[in-house]
Computed example of a mutant assay.
Amino acid sequence: MSITFDPSEWLSCGRLFPQGCPPKIIQDEIKHLEAMPLWISISTPSPDLSVDTLLNLSINLAFDDIDKGSVLRFFSQQSALNDSELLKDFLSCPVSSFALSSELRQLFGQAWFDGCHSIIHAAFPTTPLPLWVLSYWYSMAQVMVARWESADNDGFIVVMEILNVLGCLPWDVRWKGFGAEGSVRSSELALLLADSKINGCLIDALIMSVVHKYMLSDPENCSRVAIKPLALSTALRCDASQWKEYATHNAFKCLRYIGDCLHDGTLQCVIFPINITNLHWAVFEVNASQQEILYGDSLDWTCPSADIDVMRCWLKQHSFKPFRKALGMPHGDQHDLYSCAVAALNTIHHAIFQDHCFLMM
């Protein structure tokens, strides 16, 4: 085969598109086909725009998704119009929804291999558009999702002080928190005010903010209490084969250090969040001075005994006798399905700063 891309060797030949890792000449050709012209790319909102600016942009609503079985009708074997031949009001035409544009991107490779050269807009079925239109639809669909997650959120209306802050932030850039574990995208901050799950990156960023506050407020005693991110609970949940190599396995480097500090008395306790069945955030405290393990759960779920057993095995590696399971950590009461992350953070705050416990009205 030739080094440069030859359509006759790849297209309309009955080939299956290599979904896993296409050859480089295929990847390069796809990048060329998906590349938006400059006048289009500069019209898509930059991730550096503030949330206020993003919400005030005039963007057309997505047209409705179609049945899954008919998605391929968006692809056409007709030759696409040249960029100069596009409709004058192309940028004002409705774009596809995020779900539809995502599916079209997944089907693009095989449709291209099958001889499709253009995209058909549902509103203009006789106008074959260039394949880069998929990139444009997908980019704009991402923007609309971000707008909906922000604008449809009651918290952005009720908590005006937070809106004033978030409104000045770029809508989708990576922010560095307090420490390497604290990296989070600004678009993820909206989850704090939404009826949706909080991801691990955001939990870690919040945890590191508590650590930073604790170090500033009580520098003399902060070394006695460790507040750790999710890496600690992840290490505790390593499989049995890894635990057999506890003394040397890199996965336990953090646990070995904390265990040694608990044993020699330089550390009194460690507090950390933990995820329960991929649904719920709770908090554990391992207190060496009292030889006990405490659990704080805003839904008052039963303390996960498997995690307690693993912690006892971990502490045994550092010559501790089994810690008793003490009464639960003081915590707030949660009455919905999505406030557990805020409640878990508040449980840690209460343990360190004696803040009021989380209370849902």
Rank of each mutant, 00 (worst) to 15 (best):
P7L: 04
A122C: 10
L202P: 07
P125F: 03
L129D: 09
V184H: 02
G14H: 09
V210G: 02
S233Y: 03
D355M: 06
S233E: 10
K68E: 14
H117N: 12
H121Y: 10
P47H: 01
L345V: 11
V145Y: 01
P130G: 04
F113Y: 14
S102L: 03
L262D: 04
G177T: 07
S50C: 09
S186W: 02
L189R: 01
M160Q: 14
W281V: 05
S217P: 02
W137M: 10
S58E: 15
I162V: 12
Q27C: 14
C93N: 08
L192N: 07
A288G: 15
T302S: 15
Y295C: 06
S139V: 00
M208A: 12
Y257C: 07
D355Y: 11
F74N: 06
E292S: 15
F90G: 01
L279N: 14
K244S: 11
I162M: 06
C222P: 02
H32Y: 10
L38I: 07
W39H: 10
G182Q: 00
A62C: 09
M144A: 07
F284I: 02
L202E: 08
A205M: 05
S70V: 12
L169E: 07
D333N: 12
T347N: 03
S339L: 01
Q242S: 15
S241R: 13
V71W: 02
P128K: 03
W175M: 15
L87M: 10
R224L: 11
S8D: 13
V145P: 08
I26T: 03
P125E: 05
M361V: 09
P322E: 07
I227M: 00
M208W: 03
L337F: 06
A122E: 10
L255H: 01
S223E: 12
C269S: 15
C254N: 06
S319N: 15
E29T: 13
D309V: 11
A226I: 01
P22L: 01
G182I: 02
I42F: 01
F17W: 09
G200F: 00
Y136G: 02
R105C: 08
I40C: 12
E29V: 02
P18H: 02
A326S: 14
V165N: 00
L315S: 02
I293H: 04
I274F: 12
V210F: 04
S96Y: 06
A194Y: 00
F252Q: 03
H349V: 00
V71Q: 07
I207Q: 06
Q354L: 10
D65T: 02
S46Y: 03
R312T: 05
A151P: 06
I308L: 10
L81R: 09
L134E: 03
P23Q: 05
D264T: 03
E181W: 08
L163M: 06
A180E: 12
W112P: 08
S298C: 15
G109P: 11
S139N: 13
L107G: 00
D154H: 09
T277E: 14
I42V: 12
L163G: 13
R174K: 11
L169I: 04
W301D: 13
M329L: 15
L315P: 11
I119D: 01
L262P: 05
V283I: 14
I271F: 09
I42A: 00
T44F: 05
L315E: 05
P130W: 07
L11S: 05
S92E: 15
G115D: 08
L134A: 04
A35E: 12
A80L: 04
H212K: 10
H318F: 13
E220M: 08
S150H: 05
G332K: 04
